[in-house]
Design a binder for these strands. Sequence first.
DNA 1: CGGTGCTCCCTTTTT
DNA 2: GGGAGCACCG
Length: 814
Amino acid sequence: MARPGGIAARAAGLRPPPAESAYLDNLNPEQRDAILTTEGPLLVLAGAGTGKTRVLTTRIAHILATGRARAGQILAVTFTNKAAREMKHRISSLVGEAVEGMPWLGTFHSIGTKVLRRHAELVGLRSDFTILDMDDQLRLMKQIIQAAGIDEKRWPARQLSAFIDGWKNKGLTPDRIPPLEARAFGNGKGGELYRAYQDRLKALNACDFGDLLLHVITIWRAHPDVLADYQRRFRYILVDEYQDTNVSQYMWLRLIATGSKNVCCVGDDDQSIYGWRGAEVDNILRFEHDFPGAKVIRLERNYRSTGHILAAASHLIAHNEGRLGKTLFTDAEDKTAEKVVVASVWDSQEEARAIGEEIERLQRDGHALSQIAVLVRASFQMRELEERFLNIGLPYRVIGGPRFYERQEIRDALAYFRVTCQPADDLAFERIVNVPKRGLGDATIQQVHAYARAKGVPLLQATAEIVETEELKPKPRSALAGLAASFARWRGDLDRLPHGQLAGIILDEAGYTEMWQQDKSAEAPGRLENLKELLRSMEDYPTLPSFLEHVSLVMDTENDPTADKVSIMTLHSAKGLEFDTVFLPGWEEGLFPHQRSLDENGAAGLEEERRLAYVGITRARKRAKIWFASNRRIHGSWQASIPSRFLDELPEAHVEVREPSSNYGGYDRSRFDAMDPFGSSYSSPGWQRAQRLKGGEDRTRGGDDRKSGSWAQPDTGSGGFAEGRSNFGGAGGRGEMRDRWGNTVHPRKASALIEGTLIAKSVGTETSDFKVGERVFHQKFGNGTVTEVEGNKLTIDFDRAGRKRVLDSFVTRP
DNA sequence: CGGTGCTCCCTTTTT
DNA sequence: GGGAGCACCG
């Protein structure tokens, strides 16, 4: 039986796949085309929910199954470890266990590391170089700024880091940066500092993340024989999320792809949301130009969302100019599908309350919490949501919080291990030289530094030597002598003891474990637990150095996705995920689109914000609910806000505007009249636009015919303006918030009561085994004492947060 | 040398 | 409002 894919393949001049290729079943014609077009450059424009990952993995399976290449001849790059893991997983389930690993499937950085370790000496490194994380980088830059005699106040290390990252993202080594940019930092010394930083890295036998790509580019450019070797090796190249590549990654790809020319890039220009960290949408927009003879395949058939959601997202994104153009459609016609809801509330607390109620309603109707997500623009928005959810006992999980390997105690422990394995790792040594406290102050450390510089030796060696002299005072001298002796001992144990055991010994003998045991703060037990977890995860690696390598590249931790909890995360971290129901709060001018994005990047910034909105809406399978609040607390003070312009860009036919349910919340013209538009730090663009709209021009669609109660821009006549002024006490409107009757509005204190009916679902019949008077620990509220037990609900007097009622599953015994 | 008060900042985040 | 980082003081 002839398959359409076979026809497509023949049309493309390729042999048809074997008849038994079941992996080609159930693909649509475009997907099939994208898989069977194996030769030559190919750009797959894959809209949200169109089966992108499936195409990538099936394409690899197809290349393997038809014998076009062996696993080791395929280069497949992703951006995140998560994406790489998922691809590996899906390929192995397609191909069976036959493919034991794709050695060249990984992130740009992990593949870069692999290449760099093989040729490190070509850029003046040894193959056991360390990879610094942001924290190390920052401390190093601070030192360099200081060494150059530049005022660190005026020129913060963070900013230098941003410059250098920016240059590295663009593939620029110190000798190639534009002179103007080189002078933009530190009284014209930016370029010098970059060079000094690179020299210092080399001296430390270390790299930062940018170098993992940049050094490889340098090597490939300077050594054509090395490059040719890789070009020959990789017969097929695949790139995921191509819209996120930066210039350096692009150059990297161009170099390697000149070999076989079988480059397949998959991406979606409409989902490019990482311009601020160097991603170049241009890369995807220019693909056909850069890779002559390239074929472009569009995947537009969406398998995820309802027609209303797709229409809303498409209509919105159509307002962007710089795009290749795709229109998502769905075959699934569902008359019962819900329109996209837009709801308004008075302030952000009301917003959190309303979202909480709606989630409880969904829960009562049998929806799984794990299929619900709240996606915010900025992480400060999470706090109010969390507070509310805790109060009503709604289980939630925050995605994208601090990562396991970024926690203080983990980084300290790793620093000990790093110095043990690599005695020359000065940054790690500095981190822990006085942790736990050993009575070493700046003066002592400076002496060691001076000695190390004078002798040209690493800090640990300097320490070991300086304690033999009379230079130091007795107390610091013996402390340092002890530390140096410990490191020497541990290093000797490296080959004799199992590394898991040695790691435990190091932390104990260093006094690090004890430090946290003595610590009486609420976080200390958690930190000890994390340390245990660190030692446990270490067992999965054969040696301590191999573990350290893993740690520097793979900084993510999976918290178990099976638990039935609502997800709270930023729009950025939601990319690639999908949920039945998606809540999108905070659609207000200034917050979304974010003012800073507009200020710093103008029209391009606005378009990126719009893409972010597009990503948000397209995460939803069945329901998307957008909210905006008329007032929001930013930096401590209340600010009046104007509905996001993106709301105006949604198609009326697919949107339901929800009238405010209570008279306390919601949009109401008299409230807008009472607000001071200039009081908002957000005001300018939204305000100007409101003025324009008032005049009746510039309304592309859905203008005056919009029914009242919609998100039409406020009519702020001069009367309203004057009135608004009087309602806001302080200069520039930064005063206390007052309601329309002139009463001061106090931020609502978290209620100690759980509304009984609301949590009916989450309260089980089982009785808690916590007892009155027992001490407990709560992740958010800290330590407290149980004062009342009712079923699985506890009333707790928290030491700091006051009396609250929470579900027993939220607390643990300290 | 280490602990406490003051000031300044405040989008998004992976590797 | 809140946290982090720094200056100053004990």
